[in-house]
Amino acid sequence: MSDHAYNFAYLDEQTKRMIRRAILKGIAVPGYQVPFASREMPMPYGWGTGGVQVTAACLTPEDVLKVIDQGADDTTNAVSIRAFFARTAGVATTEATDQASVIQTRHRIPEAALTEGQILVYQVPIPEPLRFLEPRESETRRMHALEDYGLMHVKLYEDIARHGEIATSYAYPVKVEGRYVMDPSPIPKFDNPKLGGMAAIQLFGAGREQRIYALPPYCDVVSLDFEDHPFVASKADHACDLCGSEVSYLDEVIADDRGSRMFCCSDTDYCAGRRAAGHRGRLSPEEVA
């Protein structure tokens, strides 16, 4: 049940309205970082204050909310944000990707394809893709305005010069609709191809940096690269040890202090779904037992 000491979804109506305006503007100008008056939330910066505010502004009482952290439904961040909205908004929550209408995520895109009508909310620590190349905010804004993006390729050039390949493996910069260069939040570059042409609305909220940006459905998103060093969506070269999937993004887990390790899907809902359907991996409990 909703805790009636709070307004629906914690934020007051005026604040949600202000955030919705920023979201609409973000959707109208894909990839453009819209400033908004970020509020103090009852959690520390870095825990998803931006994503929580965007989710709060999107939620309706009929929504079904799913929250994931690095793909998992059962980690601290995911559990506490889910509990936060269950308490302050009284909305139904789920761990099933296909049943959720709003999904707040930290650093992953679910493996299951999202559909029209779903909203994917990203938590963003640093929205500015040029930040570590150009420290001045006034200058990065001007660079966005003038499409002065040579510097972005300098970063990729440096990667290849030093590592022999583009070593950026997360928060891989993308160009949206041929115009704005955007930081897709620290998702692994494995997820980059899913950003473009997605049926769901994608919203990005950065609380500390006070920025909201968005990708409307079926938007054109291209990962930056060189002709002779093209973008590659990489993942660990293994199958999931629990469900046997060879196409999902994997976490590496150190199993003991003698160096043995296992790989398992970072998307827990996807992995559980496959196991329920009878798929088995190398270390599935049934086989070990």
């Binding site: 002065d148 993006y149 040579g150 510097l151 390729h153 300098v154 050039y157 440096e158 290849i160 010069a161 030093r162 690269d225 060189f226 002709e227 002779d228 060093h229």
Partner: peptide
């Protein structure tokens, strides 16, 4: 750009005007 290698410094203007071939830039 003091934090960027000599090659990156020279290549920046090329990349800013649209050069996208690493080998050629280098």
């Amino acid at each position: 750009r003091m934090g960027v290698s000599a090659g990156g410094n020279v290549g920046e203007r090329l990349m800013a005007v649209g050069a996208r071939n690493y080998g050629a830039i280098r």
